[in-house]
């Protein structure tokens, strides 16, 4: 019995090409390319976190500081030195300037005689005044550089809802004595005060 004749090389290659084409299958999509989406999301996240951290309106709510609510719908002012009055302390910017006595004591004599300039009936809080004088100096230079009126500064007052009126007036009076002429009282927006 004779051996069958082998196909020629061109015939062999043509058959090989045909077979490769037949066996080739569509490439599977094993993964989605989400790199572009990730880029966008990471940028949005960084942007939001940065905005949130820098915004003066980002007030952490805690038992020590709970803002009063208002039906007001205006945009919060971002301009000014931030004064925070919590249940236990007063801060100028991020620096604590005064530890507050109990609420009952504040109703009688404000922050206490030792922190006043001229006795218990005076409204000027000396430690706060000292801190505000420094803040005013910096703010004055800033306002000059920004082309704003440097004769007076603005203050954002972030106060706890239970702050007694007497303390509020003492803080405002001290601000006024340190050339702060416009105040922004920060409140939480609410839909209804039913």
């Amino acid at each position: 019995m004779s051996e069958p004749t082998k196909a020629s090389m061109p015939q062999f290659k043509a058959a090989l090409r045909r077979e490769i084409r037949r066996r080739a299958h569509e490439p599977e999509i094993n993964f989605l390319n989400i790199t572009a989406m990730l880029d966008i999301m990471t940028i949005i996240l960084v942007f939001l976190l940065k905005n949130l951290g820098e915004s003066a309106s980002a007030v952490p709510q805690s038992d020590d500081l709970r803002l009063p609510t208002s039906v007001l719908r205006t945009e919060p002012s971002q301009e000014g030195v931030v004064i925070t009055v919590s249940k236990t302390q007063i801060l100028v910017g991020d620096n604590r300037v005064l530890r507050l006595p109990s609420r009952e004591s504040m109703v009688q004599s404000g922050v206490g005689t030792s922190n006043k300039r001229n006795g218990p009936n005076d409204l000027y809080i000396t430690p706060l005044g000292n801190a505000l004088a420094k803040a005013r100096k910096t703010d004055k230079i800033l306002r000059q550089k920004k082309g704003k009126d440097p004769s007076t500064s603005e203050a954002i007052i972030i106060a706890d809802g239970t702050t007694p009126y007497r303390l509020l007036i003492e803080v405002m009076f001290t601000l006024g004595q340190n050339e702060f002429g416009r105040y922004h009282l920060m409140v939480m927006q609410t839909k209804d005060k039913g």
Binding site: V59, L67, S77, M172, Q189
Partner: peptide
């Protein structure tokens, strides 16, 4: 945490 501000002057 939507906030707002009330404008006022020294007392």
């Amino acid at each position: 945490t939507f906030t707002s501000t009330i404008e006022t002057n020294p007392p």
